[in-house]
């Protein structure tokens, strides 16, 4: 179980990294934490000819509040979020999510942006990014572009990123004061990829729910929004019955897939439970 041969570059600056990515195009992959990429290389399911190792580019290692956004650099490791990266409910939600990612050694090494670039259907950060309306900042040798989370995911392990580009940063809008979040997932073992998860964000204003977003992960090719459930919650008081109904709605309208670990029907049931739990967490926060 040894990877196919590749060339390794460890540039010290972003510019060098982007130049390498421009030169090698589809043959190149960015190596950040490597906690997802390296196993797939070990099985030779991924066989990049060139690895552009960004671990020496200190400028990418940041998690900073800037104006109304939280900027997460390409080298920010999962563990960075285990203690709140930002005050308030957003930081608390990110900490809760981070704690469910794999295990401590992998959290110390794997990166937030790497999870989004890898786009595993069961990635906690992918569902989180969708729920929190993240924007992906893609850098290439000759410029930058931003992609909204809703346009980012394009199927299993597939994103809007083009050859020659690198996910330089993920930008999370800082939520309004009335905002609160919730997260729940179901995994068979500690640290496993979840069989279903829900990430919830909503505002409680004047006793009613506003702007709820519910992202579901682990159930299919990519994280999805539970739009029908989100609509159901709008402007309603968050009664237990409403949350149950929203959870049931999310389950009814999602399209879970079957795999080795769970039949689709079971995943649908888990969606109802995870959405219910995440919503309860959010409204009771």
């Amino acid at each position: 179980m040894k990877p196919a041969s590749f060339a390794h570059h460890a540039p010290l600056t972003l510019e060098e990294a982007l130049a390498l990515l421009a030169r090698h195009g589809e043959e190149a992959r960015v190596l950040a934490g490597g906690q997802s990429l390296v196993p797939t290389m070990a099985f030779r399911m991924a066989r990049p000819a060139v690895l552009v190792d960004i671990n020496r580019i200190a400028a990418l290692d940041h998690v900073t509040v800037e104006g109304s956004v939280l900027r997460i650099g390409a080298l920010a490791r999962h563990a960075r979020f285990e203690t709140p990266a930002v005050a308030g409910p957003l930081g608390a939600l990110l900490a809760r999510v981070a704690h469910h990612i794999a295990h401590p050694p992998l959290r110390l090494r794997g990166t937030f942006c790497g999870s989004l670039a890898h786009a595993d259907p069961a990635s906690e950060w992918c569902a989180t990014a969708l729920a929190l309306e993240a924007r992906m900042v893609l850098a290439r040798a000759d410029g930058l572009r931003e992609v909204a989370a809703e346009d980012w995911f394009q199927g299993v392990f597939s994103t809007a990123m083009a050859p020659g580009e690198m996910l330089r940063e993920v930008v999370l809008p800082l939520p309004a004061p009335a905002w609160r979040g919730g997260f729940a997932e179901f995994a068979r073992r500690a640290g496993d990829f979840a069989l279903a998860m829900a990430v919830v964000g909503l505002r409680l204003e004047g006793g009613v729910v506003r702007g709820a977003r519910i992202a579901l992960g682990g159930i299919g090719g990519q994280p999805v929004l539970a739009r029908e459930a989100m609509a159901l919650l709008e402007s309603q008081p968050p009664s237990p019955a409403l949350l149950e109904e929203a959870a049931a709605t999310a389950a009814r309208h999602c399209d879970p897939q079957e795999d080795l670990h769970a039949p689709a029907e079971y995943r649908r049931e888990l969606v109802a439970v995870m959405v219910k739990r995440a919503l309860r967490q959010a409204v009771s926060a």
């Binding site: 390794h8 490597g34 906690q35 390296v38 196993p39 070990a42 690895l51 401590p104 050694p105 992998l106 110390l108 090494r109």
Partner: peptide, 10 residues
Amino acid sequence: GLPVRGCLVF
């Protein structure tokens, strides 16, 4: 100073 999986680092 940090624990790593020796198989996931080159």
